[in-house]
Computed example of a mutant assay.
Amino acid sequence: MAEIAREAPGDFHEVEALYDLCFAPGREALSSYRLRDGVPPEAALCLVARGRAGEVAGAIRTWPVRVDEVPALLLGPVAVHPTRQGEGLGALLIHKVVARARDLGHPRMMLVGDAPYYARFGFARLEGVVMPPPTNPERVLGLELVEGGWDGIAGEVTRAVD
């Protein structure tokens, strides 16, 4: 299928080119990008899938954020090259990142996405967790990586800064 490895610094431009190909122009204007601006991603939770010829077939990144000052992970973006879509590569990347995040002891993860797609990974609507506008609240989803990981957590999602 594909070889999956942690994203290396030399992968940056190829991964960005994949995101440009897969997402609409202006993707960086989305609210989730404002949360990423100036914040390094969680390197251990950024993966690249390469095809047999060494091409970037898929990628996923994860970022630290805060929900009312409580640390959380923001999953995404995840992208699969159009010629590789439908092979399950995106699902594989998501499963691997979720498993690694659990292994690393992170208690919670969130994303902005389509509930019917992400429900199969265990993500569900987060009540009371507010992304910067303009984000549809129905698309703010969360996953407990440990039991009770989202219990009692609500509020605005902000950038994780030191």
Rank of each mutant, 00 (worst) to 15 (best):
I153T: 12
T83C: 12
V161K: 12
F121Y: 01
D20N: 12
Y118N: 13
P107A: 02
P133I: 05
D162V: 13
V65E: 07
M110A: 12
C22V: 09
R84L: 10
D68K: 05
V15E: 09
G10W: 12
G88M: 01
L111Y: 02
D68M: 07
P40F: 03
C22W: 00
G26T: 10
L30S: 15
P9F: 08
V161D: 09
P77M: 03
A17H: 04
V80K: 01
P133A: 15
D68L: 10
L89D: 12
P41Q: 08
A72I: 03
A79G: 14
V140W: 02
V56T: 02
A57H: 08
S32L: 15
L145W: 08
H95E: 15
E138V: 01
L126N: 06
A59V: 10
L73W: 02
E127Y: 07
L74H: 01
A115M: 01
G54K: 00
G10C: 12
G26C: 08
F121D: 00
R100H: 10
P41C: 10
L126E: 06
G58M: 04
V56G: 01
A115E: 13
L75C: 06
E55C: 00
A154G: 02
A101V: 11
D20H: 13
E7Q: 15
Q85E: 03
V140D: 06
P40H: 00
V161S: 08
R27Y: 14
A24D: 14
D151M: 12
E16M: 11
R100L: 15
L145H: 08
V112R: 09
L145C: 08
V140A: 11
P133R: 07
E147V: 14
D68W: 03
V140C: 07
D103P: 12
R52T: 15
A57K: 04
L47I: 12
R139L: 05
Y19S: 10
P41R: 00
P40Y: 01
R84P: 01
A57L: 10
M110N: 09
E127N: 06
G38M: 07
A2D: 15
G128R: 10
N136S: 12
E147A: 15
A154E: 01
V56F: 00
A160Y: 04
T83L: 11
A59C: 10
T62G: 06
R61N: 10
V157E: 07
P71S: 02
C46S: 06
I153Q: 07
V130H: 06
P71Y: 04
V78M: 02
F12S: 14
E14P: 10
A99Y: 12
E147S: 14
C46R: 03
S31T: 07
A49Q: 01
G51T: 07
D37R: 13
P137G: 13
A72E: 08
P107F: 04
L45K: 05
P9Q: 05
P9V: 07
D162N: 12
A53Q: 12
A5S: 14
G51R: 11
P82Q: 02
R36S: 14
Y33F: 13
I94E: 00
A91Q: 10
P133N: 03
P40E: 06
L18T: 09
N136I: 07
Q85L: 04
V161Q: 08
E127Q: 15
F12H: 15
I60Y: 06
P132I: 04
R159C: 05
